[in-house]
Write a protein that binds this DNA or RNA. Structure first.
Lengths: 126, 126
DNA sequence: CGCACCCTGACACGCGGCTGGTAAGGTTAG
DNA sequence: CTAACCTTACCAGCCGCGTGTCAGGGTGCG
């Protein structure tokens, strides 16, 4: 069995147990649990924790940023809305149709749907 | 000339002049300047500011998050690194449909999957 | 000319994220 | 049984974000 307890995982990855739980709470590295609820860190989780650390210092990003990036992946509509908003800044002409973009078809669909939602200016909510 | 000064733009978009400068500092909405340095808000900027506001409240994101999203668009290397990291284990735990499964079983399943990811997923700076 | 606006920079302040620590209780192994 | 772990939940200090405000100086227009 190549799984470590949270304390062991902490010492070998340079995080604190507290932060391991926090990182899990952010949804970034979730350790499987034993039958009684103990977190079990396997090689995959350890590797992920180390690369996470690497990411943070190499690019000077914060856990919260990664949490947001995660959210973008879990909420395509949000990602689409942002895509749309950012693209409205570029003076480039309507370059909507992508020639080679297989996996993002469904995403493009979402974007369109929500861009219309957003640009249909309704700010009367009070 | 359909440009507004920062104070006018503020009152018509619901931001404060202070926040307009802050938003610009984050790189989110940059207004062109007059010869003497005054910010000139045109229809495009005003629309962008309103949509930004809409984004923030509709999806409950923060300006800092948007700043990070902007950074992702300006630093493809960072975006790639995140892509890489997330793809090494991205599943949706809250959506796992299995009703009840012995802990040890799905634990083994997870670990197996992750080991495979690790051994085969040699990310050679893709 | 004067007033009202703009600029940048700086300080202030509340709130919430990050991180540690601790308490109360369950689990594992000797 | 005991000791050393683990769990969750809470409280506390630090710090940065969001925001207001002020100071010192420039601009535009009646």
């Amino acid at each position: 069995m190549t799984t470590l307890t949270i304390h062991e995982a902490a010492t070998t990855t340079g995080w604190s147990p507290r932060m391991l739980r926090y990182v899990e709470q952010l949804g970034l590295v979730e350790a499987p649990r034993s039958a009684s609820g103990y977190r079990l860190y396997g090689p995959a989780q350890l590797q992920r924790l180390r690369t996470l650390r690497e990411l943070l210092e190499r690019y000077d990003v914060e856990l919260g940023d990664l949490g947001f990036a995660l959210r973008l992946r879990r909420e395509p509509e949000l990602a689409g809305a942002l895509d749309d908003w950012f693209s409205s800044q570029l003076e480039a002409p309507p370059q909507r149709p992508e020639p080679e973009m297989p996996d993002s078809d469904w995403l493009a669909f979402e974007q369109d749907k929500h861009s219309q939602l957003l640009t249909s200016g309704r700010q009367d909510t009070a």
